[in-house]
Amino acid sequence: MIVSSNDTVRISADPPKGSTSLQRLLRSDAFASIASPIVILLVWEMLVRVQLLDARFFPTPSSVIVELVSMIRSGEIFVHIAWTVSRVAIGTLLGAIPGLVFGVLLGLSPVLRTFIQPAISALYPIPKIALFPLVMMIFGIGDASKWVIVAIAVFFQVFFSTLAGVVNIDKIYLDVASNFKASRWQTYWTIAIPGALPFIFTGLQLGLGMALIVVVIAENFGTQVGVGYIIWQSWQVFEVRNMYVGLIVVAFLGYCFQLLLQRLQRAVIPWKKDGGT
């Protein structure tokens, strides 16, 4: 705590924080992040009830919740979630692994970089979803094409992040490895990958965000299950409450993915725990 007056600056320990559990709850991040959406939903509910918002497009939150609860009761929603999650998970694995491998290889080899990077960079600006028709022509309209399009989206994010991470590793660490006569393989495992891990996680985070966007669009085609399917289906039958259920679930999934990734990051990068480098 710093208190300054005209002639002194007093720097002392901060006063103890409020210790009742209520005070701690009010101060916690969790509370803040829950409080504001609740306020918004309440305002929304009121606006629809006084008919300032059109209930055909903006159903009352309460009616959406009723719908959500009934889908949870019947277990139907879990089937959709399971399908979407499995598509994202498989696609992410299929994309992240080659992204990582290419990122590390190119990061440590200027020669490979000059040969391969231009090709990958040229493909990068294509909106990934624009490739989906082509992917469906090749892999059919079933799940395989969904995995592949997710994989493509994730690949680019992980690849570029890993590459940047490896290229940015302080050269001195590579010198140490080379002085200790580390083999190429040992250099990948002991220097390149751990050194680039913070970047790799950023790539995974961006990649998972992309994966969710892509999978929701892809679930419009060739499937009867998935959260994306709920959204598209309710658009066709003009069942707007279902659509909102879909939107809520997608948002929730995105949130869970990020949370999972943060947990994983903390476990895998312990040297970043208290903010060091």
């Binding site: 660490y173 140490v176 002991t190 220097i191 050194g195 891990l197 060091g276």
Partner: peptide, 17 residues
Amino acid sequence: APLSSMIFQESSIFPWM
């Protein structure tokens, strides 16, 4: 056996180990 080991002027200890 290893021939030489260098101790660098600047900090070279691996942050991730």
